[in-house]
């Protein structure tokens, strides 16, 4: 193993560790597209925040449908645990560490954000809100 290769490997491990989950090209592309949208819609945008995403995840929102005021109305409070639909069906954990396939299909991500933002906050989520939540769940 050359020093150079060792260096690259160390950097890669560091990058992976800092993200807290194994990266996936499809998920990266979804986040990159959201970053583009966020830049356009929020001039002061400096990047997504897992902390903001976490706050959004746990918040009790208003404006949505009465049965579902929070992400955690159906998803588990701990994203590493399975949630449950109102009809009693299990929802696989949202944490990428537990469900590595999460956020790797752009159409699915768009579909669920549209539905669930309507249901929980009563409007479409902003690109920043979506990116923040995705960042939060990707690190979980």
């Amino acid at each position: 193993m050359t020093d150079r290769f060792r260096g690259i490997l160390a950097t890669l491990i560091l990058v992976c560790a800092s993200f807290g989950a194994v990266a996936d090209p499809a998920r990266d592309a979804i986040l990159a597209a959201l970053t583009e949208e966020a830049r356009k819609s929020s001039p002061g945008f400096t990047g997504f925040s897992a902390q903001r995403g976490e706050a959004f995840w746990f918040a009790t929102h208003s404006g949505g449908k009465p049965d579902t005021p929070s992400c955690t109305s159906c998803h588990a409070k701990d994203p590493a645990l399975p949630g449950e639909t109102r009809a009693g069906k299990a929802i696989e954990p949202m944490a990428v560490s537990k469900s590595p396939k999460r956020f790797t299909n752009a159409a699915e991500v768009a579909k669920w954000f549209t539905r669930n933002c309507n249901g929980v906050v009563g409007r479409e989520c902003t690109p920043v809100e979506k990116g923040d939540v995705l960042t939060f769940l990707s690190k979980k």
Binding site: K65, R86, T114, R115, G119
Partner: peptide
């Protein structure tokens, strides 16, 4: 489907 028993279940 946009108001499916209290949830938005809209589809393409």
């Amino acid at each position: 489907l946009a108001d499916h028993f209290g949830e938005d279940a809209s589809l393409a």
